[in-house]
Structure formats: C-alpha cells, structure tokens
Design a protein around this nucleic acid. Sequence first.
DNA 1: TCGAACCCTGCCCCAGGGGCAAGGTCAAGT
DNA 2: ACTTGACCTTGCCCCTGGGGCAGGGTTCGA
Lengths: 242, 242
Amino acid sequence: MAGMITIGKLADYAGVTIKAVRHYHERGLLTEPDRDSSGYRRYTARHAIDLVKIRTLADAGVPLARVRELLDADPDTLTAAIADIDHDLKDRIARLRRTRLQLAQLRGGDQLFVSPDVATYLDALRDLGVSERQIRLERDGWILMQTASPADAAVWIAEKRELITDPAFRALYLEHDAAYDWPPDDARLPALAKRTRDWFTSHHSHTETRPVHNPTIAQLAAQSQPEATSPAWDRLAQLMRD
Amino acid sequence: MAGMITIGKLADYAGVTIKAVRHYHERGLLTEPDRDSSGYRRYTARHAIDLVKIRTLADAGVPLARVRELLDADPDTLTAAIADIDHDLKDRIARLRRTRLQLAQLRGGDQLFVSPDVATYLDALRDLGVSERQIRLERDGWILMQTASPADAAVWIAEKRELITDPAFRALYLEHDAAYDWPPDDARLPALAKRTRDWFTSHHSHTETRPVHNPTIAQLAAQSQPEATSPAWDRLAQLMRD
DNA sequence: TCGAACCCTGCCCCAGGGGCAAGGTCAAGT
DNA sequence: ACTTGACCTTGCCCCTGGGGCAGGGTTCGA
C-alpha cells in the first residue's frame, strides 16, 4: 500500500542507521512491523513517531532498557522521568564545560596536577630563580604527598609558603639548588651544611611539625626521577646528619 | 620507600576506580610500575601525572587508543590535537543543548515529529475546530509523506496551508470531518460528494500538481491507525469516484 | 589475634551498535 | 531479456570502557 515505508526510509527520517532500527526491534523498543510479500519490513507513521521518541531519549543518554519502560509509561510518570533526564543532561553539560577548562590547562602547566596552593608556591619558586629541575622535583614531591595524605599536604604547603618569604630561607634554598651540580668534594659544602643546620635549629622552636626539608622531598620523589639526587646532595645530606 | 603509593591511593587521587587503572595498564596507556615484596603495584608521581592526563583526555571523549598516541606525541602535535578535541567538545555541548529542547517537546506535542510548516498547519486545523482524531490522521499522513519524499511533502504542505485559508475549502473540510460519524446511508453524503467534486474541478486549473485531498491522506495513513476510515467515508469515496 | 580494608589474577558480563558474509529483490536503462 | 546498482534479509563476530564476582593473599590497628 501507498503509505508503507521501508526500513531505509524510516532510518533516514529519524537519522539513524538501519542496523540501529533492527537493534531496537531486538530490544523490544520498536514493534516489528508486518512484512510485504518479499519479506521486507513495512513501516507506518506510528513507527516513525516511536522511533523519533526513542532517539530523543537515547540521545539524552537514557539506557535503551529504560527507554522501553518510558515508551508505555503513563503521562505523569513520563513527565517526571523527563524532568530527571533533563536535570542529568544539564549536569552533564556543566561537566563537559569543566572538562574544556581542564583540557586548556593540559597545555598550560602544572595547575592540573597539584592544588592551587602548591601551584602558586611553584610559581613563587620560579620567580625566585630556582632551576626547572628543582621545580619538577618539588612538584612531584607534592603530588606524592597529596595522594598519600591530602590533609597533611595542605598544612605543609601553607608552612612552606610562609617559609619561602623569609630572605634567609630563600638564600639557603637557592644555594641548595645550585649545590646540586657541585663536585661532592666542593669546599663550600661543609659551610652550607652548617648554615642550614643553624637555620633549622633557630627555627625549630618556631614551628611544631618540622617543615619539610628540601632534600627530604627529593628523597620522597627519588623513585620517580633518575635525576632526583646528585653526588653533592648525597654528601650534603651526610654532612647534615653528622 | 616513603614516596611510593598503592593503586588505591593513585585511583583516589585521579578520581577513577582501581579497575580503570588496571585497564589503562592493559591498554598500554599507563606503564606498569614496579611491585613491592608482596606483589602490590607501587606508583610514583609520574604515574599520578600521567593518570590525570589520561582522565582529562578520556573525559573529553577521546578514545583510549588515541589517548595513548597523544601521551607521547610532541608538543606541537599535542597542541593541535587538543584544539581539535576542544572543538569537538564545544560541538557536543551544543548538541546536548539541542537534545534538551527536543526533550521538552516530547512532553509538548507534535512539533518533534513533523516539520515546523506541518506543525503550524496542524495548529491551524485545531483553531478551525477540527476533531483531534482528524488531526492525528493528518499528522500521521504528513509523517509518512515526509519520510517517503520530503521535497514533495514540502510543496504539498505549502499548497495545503494556502488552501486552508479559503473559506469554501474550510467549510468542506469541516463537513468531511463531521461526516466520519454519519451513517453510510446518510442523505447528506451525495450532496457533500457533489460539492466536493465541484470545488475540485473549479480549482483544478488553478494548481498544477493536484493538492492532496483529505480522504487520500486518510488512505495513506490507513494502515497506521484502526480508526483511519469509517463506513461514511468509504461511501463518500465511492460516490466521488462515480 | 582478629577483622577490616587493602591488594592480586582471571573470568564473564553489559550497552550500543559496526562490519561483513551470503544471499534475495526491485527499478531503470539498454 | 539482461544487467547493474541500490535496496532488503539473517547471522555471526567485533569493538570500547570498563563493572562484578570469585577465590585467593596482605597489612594494619585495636
């Protein structure tokens, strides 16, 4: 008869593939239409309407099993369900927008991997003229600490950010950074070790939990990077232990 | 060693499940870390960084196979790829927004299933006082025509919208609608058939492609609804053929 | 010393189709 | 009358991105 359309036409109308239409038959979403004399499926306007409904719900991310339930739900149930789905959709759009922002940061830098506090601390180090190697070491250390114990990490980074404003500490920090490349028997090492120890003892009373000390961080991160220590640093650590 | 974290900590840090982490190992996205003495995986900061990258890309809808490629692509390639992905993401957000609108229409009416032209035509019929049964019949007919031949349907609906502004045609249309429920031997049927034929012959010269006539539409949709015809309409069709 | 909370591998399961094989059918042109 | 290309049919296996569960071993704190 004139008004009966084939599966291809139906699929085109709804913007889906023929395969999808057959899939919906298998799942019981769309009733199988009658066949013509040669076995072709012949669809009616009802099927077209149902198919558009199915696609609208499926596009909204509703699982096909749930779509089937909704297709013959009473209007009130359907209305409530649609409100739910719409809420979910709004949510999903918001999450995609956040993903876009994060994606932009993937190009940018470290903000994606560490907390904002740590990121500003790393920027402060950069301003101070600390080497990129050292900054990587710090960053990896903080990531580790954040995964191991976010609460402790938050306390420590606050202390560190305070500490790095102290000119004496800044000078020591820069010298430690520079010492990385010194020969292990460099004459400046014992003096640096002494000054570091003096500084620590003079500040020990000051803060309860001992602030995380640079080589300590380096050790934490030691596994993650081959360049995490150097002969001079090893020597320095030894001098400071004595 | 102090800085080595377990799979659970790593997964929590990145906001994924343990299962997902192991999945990324299998797919070669994340290198397998060393194991400790009891066979547990022990992760470093590098892994945490990689995992966050992986999730950021995966959240953006990038297939895992492509993520693997991107993880060790050179910066320029990565930048270009990110631009692509972001474009796609924007696109997807737009499509979800459209889905939300369509979802709202699922509650509303027929706008979802027929073209805007047809929807306004149906509204015009409603204003005219045509029965809902007849409007359903028309709607299904138009859906069928749109699937079978969208271009022809567009021409026809334009003609129909013009036609329905003609008071004589409006009167005939309403009478046909009412005739549905008449007994097949109703005395008014022959007169209605004659007036309809007269109207058509007087308008035939006027428009080239013969405008689709009401019972014709009904026949098109005959398969889709049990109520698509009535004894009186059958009789009317027969009277008009003679 | 016990229970809770971890961790391991291995296996099968799901949605939502895509792809391909191996046919049958239909309409148009020649 | 034949061919060609565009349709249609069923059936089967494939993919992604994991989830769930079984059937173990380990570690940590009370």
